[in-house]
Structure formats: C-alpha cells, structure tokens
C-alpha cells in the first residue's frame, strides 16, 4: 500500500519508511484529531473512494486504514 503510506507520510510529516501497520494516534503524536480529518479527506481523494463517518472513526491504526481502503476497492498494489 505504497500510495497510502505516501498520504500518511505527507499529512503526518514523517518519512514513508516509518509508516507501519501499528502506527496509531497512541504512538504518533502528529496523528491528532485535526490531522485525522485531513487524512480521511486526502485518502478518499487519492483512492477515489468515500468512507462513512463510522468507517472513518473506526480506523485505529495504519493497518485498519489499509483494510478499509482495500474494502472500498482501493488497489493495494498502488
């Protein structure tokens, strides 16, 4: 999920190598509630998908985000 990592890295101001499945607001101070909103809208745009509010709020770490994007038809090899 390279593209998803790129979005996370850009929004959270970190390098792509540091993005892993367990990355979450608990271990990443930049992932605050305001950046979470930017993440949602930028991921939707990048993959051309739309999340419901509940789906978006259920994302607790990067792994969850990957699964959510894939479930919406976002291509994992991108």
């Amino acid at each position: 999920m390279e593209k998803l990592k790129t979005v996370f890295a850009a929004v959270l101001g970190m390098s792509v190598e540091n993005i892993h499945d367990d990355l979450s607001p608990d271990n990443c101070p930049a992932w605050d509630s305001l950046n979470a909103i930017i993440l949602i809208t930028e991921i939707e745009k990048a993959f051309g998908v739309k999340f419901t509010f509940d789906e978006a709020m259920a994302v607790k770490n990067f792994g969850d985000a990957t699964k959510l994007v894939e479930s919406k038809g976002g291509k994992s090899h991108e």
């Binding site: 790129t6 979005v7 850009a10 101001g13 930028e42 745009k45």
Partner: peptide
C-alpha cells in the same frame, strides 16, 4: 494530489 504536496511542505515549517 496537489493539496497533499502543500500539506507535506507545510509540515516542514
């Protein structure tokens, strides 16, 4: 992806 580029840039401030 334009907005993302500017957000990324802003994070380097």
């Amino acid at each position: 992806m334009q907005t993302l580029r500017y957000i990324e840039l802003a994070n380097t401030l």
